[in-house]
Design a binder for these strands. Structure first.
Length: 202
DNA sequence: TGCCAGGCCCTCTTTAGGGCCTT
């Protein structure tokens, strides 16, 4: 696969349209199935983290008081990602925060998102669930840190993506699984995965 | 005060409802 950026946000809630803000961002650069670079930062927006999310993530309001401003972090993150296409686990969530936080600092990154959860539903249909933690265990991948911390989740999502690409390459005899094929797979019904991949090969 | 998401996917479906997944 070409150079891609795997991204994960921790936030104060589910929806930026209803006032939720990002509290931490983690990004890893994946090249040829290998993580070659990492970016991580807490970010201070002024929004308060509900106590149950403090417990979930381990990120506290006290920690955010010491964090760099969200605007500075998002500018750094956008520069770090550059033109690379993006991947996230349940990308509909992270893409909303990516665009909302960038918009606040007058930036716009329009590269496409692929969703590792949607791809996993097709590549690993028999997994007990398609939560990130369950998939890491199911695929016998290494737990690289605490779940619900941005860099650890981004890193484990990257290893899941690499594993799924290996699985697709082996099953269908592909030399490469580009980001555009992941996008095509996630938009195809599960029962038509084989047809989708073969038509991509031409 | 209490509530506020959104897209995918399955099925007892398609003029719908509810679970999954992200924090």
């Amino acid at each position: 696969m070409e150079r891609v950026a795997v991204i994960d946000f921790e936030t104060t809630g589910m929806s930026p349209e209803h006032g939720a803000r990002a509290t931490e961002i983690g990004i890893v650069i994946l090249e040829g199935g290998v993580v070659v670079d990492r970016y991580q930062s807490l970010m201070k927006s002024g929004a308060r983290i509900p106590s149950f999310i403090e417990e979930l993530t381990g990120i506290t309001n006290a920690m955010l008081r010491q964090a760099p401003p969200a605007a500075q972090v998002m500018r750094e993150a956008a520069e770090f990602v550059g033109e690379a296409p993006l991947i996230a686990h349940n990308a509909s969530f992270d893409s909303r925060f990516w665009h909302a936080e960038l918009e606040r600092v007058g930036l716009s990154c329009q590269q496409p998102f692929a969703c590792s959860m949607l791809v996993a539903r097709r590549v690993f249909p028999s997994a007990p669930s398609h939560k990130l933690g369950t998939l890491i265990e199911y695929a016998d991948l290494q737990v690289t840190g605490r779940f619900h911390r941005a860099l650890a989740d981004a890193e484990m999502t990257a290893s899941l993506v690499a594993r799924m690409c290996d699985e697709l390459a082996r099953t269908y005899g592909l030399r490469d699984v580009p980001h555009s094929l992941l996008r095509k797979i996630q938009a195809t019904p599960r029962t038509r995965l084989a047809e989708c991949v073969r038509s991509f090969r031409g």
